[in-house]
Amino acid sequence: MTSGSTEDQALLERVRAGNEPAFESLFQKYYPGLLRYGKMLLPYPTDEAEEAVFDVFAKLWIQRHNIHLHISLASFLYKAVKNRTHDYYRKKNMVSVVLVEAENEPEQTYQIPDQQLQFKELTQGIEKLIALLPERTQMVFRMNRYDGLTYQEIANLLNISVNSVKTHMYRAIKFLKDAYLSARASGQC
């Protein structure tokens, strides 16, 4: 049980009782991550990702009395977005290319040269550093850090192995730790 999910359960309890501020809190917490995930699943510039996330939250509100979760709320919401995007592909008679992406290890060649850490952008803080990571690594890191999803849950949502998730996480942390520290040391972060 993570602290995040304890907080979520308290919020969800209030949502069930019809408390709108609690509902908005959940929305605020998960909207950015779910939207990012939805956009990854829907490769075209489109509003569909936003629509998918709205659908999920609308359903959560309308059916709040009937929702009994056996998994974490974060995992539930991400799965729901995944299902929505499947529906989208089904409607368009398309094959969901992203979702059947073959298992692959994170790029081995990925390196950040030291001098890059001296970039002025570092003054913008850690968000800039995260943005320097490969897209898939960013996704894994944010799902874990921001939304408290476990490695297993992330693996299922991205259709990759738990080992791949671990590799992404390790690389993200190692890079961010070193970059953040050196940026702080030079007074830039």
Binding site: K29, R145, I173, Y180
Partner: peptide, 14 residues
Amino acid sequence: DIKLLWQASAPKPN
């Protein structure tokens, strides 16, 4: 160090 990084990367309000 990792703790510092972890805390610094808390989600920012959007």
